[in-house]
Amino acid sequence: MTDPVRPPVGTRLTRTGWEIPEALDEPMVRAVVDSFYAKARADDVIGPVFNRVIAEADWPEHIDKITSFWSSMLLGTGTYGGRPMPKHMAIPELSDMHFSRWLALFRQTAQELCPPDVAELFIERSERVGQSFRLNIAVRRGEDVTRMGPLPRE
């Protein structure tokens, strides 16, 4: 039985009370974001979308903003104050193909750079984010989401 005051061995509590793996920290979040976006920008499926929507000169600021998003999402830092959904809704070509590829590259990056428990957390959260964005965009487009299942893995 675990002590209700202490997190299980190999984990720690964030300031928000979330249990996270000990190995997960800001530099790891930044490494995953940097590596993922380098792959994404060069990818044949999602690269053209990213490169059309985000100007070359804006990438450093975008990487900082996305790092802050994932830091808040995984570490509970509360440093992200943006609203990502409206930006994504404004991209007319986004489809399941794009979300599936985004998730596959994100999963691959997390597995390459992180210990298994940290990769698992990144993957689980990315799948939640991807599914949420996908459903919200579909609703906004007037699509019937009642029969939409989870995205298939690439």
Rank of each mutant, 00 (worst) to 15 (best):
E19W: 08
F99L: 03
N136H: 05
I66Y: 05
L74I: 06
D144S: 06
P116V: 03
I63R: 06
M97T: 15
R15Q: 14
L105F: 06
I137T: 04
Q111P: 00
F106V: 05
P92Y: 02
P4M: 08
P116R: 05
I66Q: 04
L13G: 04
P150E: 14
S132H: 14
L13R: 15
E120I: 00
E22N: 06
F69K: 02
A110E: 11
V145D: 00
G149T: 06
R107T: 14
T77W: 04
V9D: 15
S132A: 06
H98Q: 07
E19V: 10
F50T: 01
R12M: 03
V33I: 15
E143D: 07
K65D: 11
D64L: 12
K87C: 10
T67G: 02
P150A: 15
K39D: 13
T109N: 03
G78N: 03
P21S: 11
R6D: 07
I137M: 05
F36M: 05
R52T: 09
L74F: 00
M1I: 10
A138S: 07
I66G: 02
I91S: 01
P48Q: 00
S71A: 15
E127I: 08
E93H: 12
T2H: 13
S35M: 11
A38W: 11
E120L: 11
E143R: 07
R107P: 05
M89Y: 08
E154I: 10
M1T: 10
F36E: 00
G130E: 11
L121D: 01
A31P: 10
K65Y: 10
D43K: 01
G78C: 04
M148L: 15
V129F: 09
E26P: 08
L151F: 14
A55K: 04
Q108K: 09
D58K: 15
K87Q: 12
F50S: 00
L135Q: 04
E127D: 11
I137P: 08
T77F: 04
S132I: 10
L74T: 04
M28R: 15
I137N: 05
I54A: 01
W59G: 02
D3W: 12
V53N: 12
V139P: 07
V53F: 10
S71W: 08
V49E: 00
I137Y: 00
Y37E: 03
W59C: 03
R141D: 05
V129W: 07
V9A: 15
C114W: 08
A23I: 02
A104Q: 09
P8L: 06
H98W: 14
R101G: 02
R107L: 09
A104N: 09
S71K: 05
V129N: 08
A57T: 00
F99M: 04
T16E: 15
I46W: 12
V49R: 02
I91F: 07
